[in-house]
Design a protein around this nucleic acid. Structure first.
Lengths: 231, 231
DNA sequence: TCTTGTGAATAGATTCACAGCA
DNA sequence: TGCTGTGAATCTATTCACAAGA
């Protein structure tokens, strides 16, 4: 079954490109708000922190939305990327685990402005039930299936401790959720049809520490070598 | 200047490998806590969520710490990776911007257990000064340079709104910080000698939404095509 | 016999450099 | 003329498959 209809939009967009599209979207929004109507690939690349060849290659996977000799219409390009990303739709999400991080996520305005609507906050701890966070009441974790069904939730966010994350993921999958954003520091085992994305708050810090350490040892080595062999 | 001394440990570790080492470290800690003394590349790969060939290739950049026919000594390998990553050292860090996210970061136990010590919490808002978060007093942003100097801080974390992030970064660089972890949704411009790493809370969600949307349209297309050409 | 460590093969991402078009 | 869009070249990462060694 490799037949394709003419309405088919199945251009294959590389994963690395998909990961950068949100960055371009953000940069275009900033440009638009500062009153820029048209920009070159060079301008947009600078605003997004990439080089212009990469930007043009990325955009070429979506289609041909620029004008040679001129550049890109900021609002038009922004709309095209938003549509491709699904950012023009409304995405109901549930957040499970209302500790410090869950609080921060519930209050994060960046979700709302990108089409994500927090329809429920769930926590297994009865002490928290009834508490209102960011205008949403915290409810029992057992309400998950009902909420997913009622609102047609496809995306779930896990902000629990590592120990409960796999259980939460299993229940999410049972309830019909097919995409999970996992902030718990653990690897989740889910079926192939479920997409899991992971954010590890300390991983990035560890990578920075690695490079710091390399810088430090490289300097020491250079100093020692200069002392030993003073050319 | 390409001369190398014999004590030089300048094996070049690929960036993709460096990004996975924290994951292996976490998996090894879990294995160790569950009483596993020795594991195969297959075991560790499963615990880390990668395939075993990739794991072995990654470890081979660090050296040869396994035993053929047997596997890896969990604690020994864990120590070797930790040392390579700089996780056996103490890394003083400052967090700037003590809103919801700053609170969550200050309270995150995963930093402390990986060698990161929060030596200061800074905020420009005078209302917050004196407040104690996770056992640390919130101080004025202007104390930055003094704190960096006093504790030898190399790594700074930005958890401010986008609008102030560039100013904070500039001040951090002036003060001598050389690695920045940026949670603000904006691209930072810093000199070449400064490493910046960015975590975008909504980016991952947007990538998931993209894949959700693709799944949905693929299903629709299949349905439509089945209706039109009922083989 | 079993599992690591690693060259060779493959796949994927980035960059170059320029043809094509406004 | 100037900037996009894109093949071709390069660089990086992943996977394969097996020799080396406990």
């Amino acid at each position: 079954m490799t037949a394709r209809t003419s309405t088919d939009t199945a251009r294959e967009i590389p994963e690395a490109t998909v990961a950068r599209l949100p960055v371009y979207l953000r940069a275009l929004t900033t440009l638009s708000e500062s009153g820029t109507a048209v920009c070159s690939s060079e301008d947009l690349a600078a605003a997004a922190g990439v080089n212009s060849a990469k930007l043009r290659k990325d955009l070429s996977y979506l289609g041909s939305y620029g004008t040679r000799g001129v550049g890109y219409d900021v609002d038009y390009l922004r709309y095209q990327i938003a549509r491709e990303m699904g950012a023009t739709r409304d995405w109901p999400v549930v957040i499970v685990g209302i500790g410090n991080l869950g609080h921060a996520l519930a209050n994060y305005s960046g979700f709302r402005s990108r089409g994500f609507r927090v329809v429920a906050l769930l926590d297994a701890d009865g002490q928290r039930h009834g508490e209102v966070v960011a205008g949403v009441v915290v409810r029992p974790f057992d309400d998950l299936a009902a909420i997913v069904h009622e609102h047609g939730v496809a995306i779930g966010v896990i902000a629990t401790p590592a120990a409960s994350a796999q259980d939460v993921a299993d229940r999410m999958v049972e309830s019909g959720i097919t995409s999970i954003l996992n902030f718990a520091p653990t690897v989740l085992n889910v079926g192939d049809h479920v997409a899991v994305s992971k954010v590890d708050l300390s991983k990035e810090l560890q990578v920075l520490a690695y490079h710091e350490q390399r810088k430090a040892t490289a300097e020491e080595a250079a100093k020692a070598s200069a002392a030993q062999e003073p050319a």
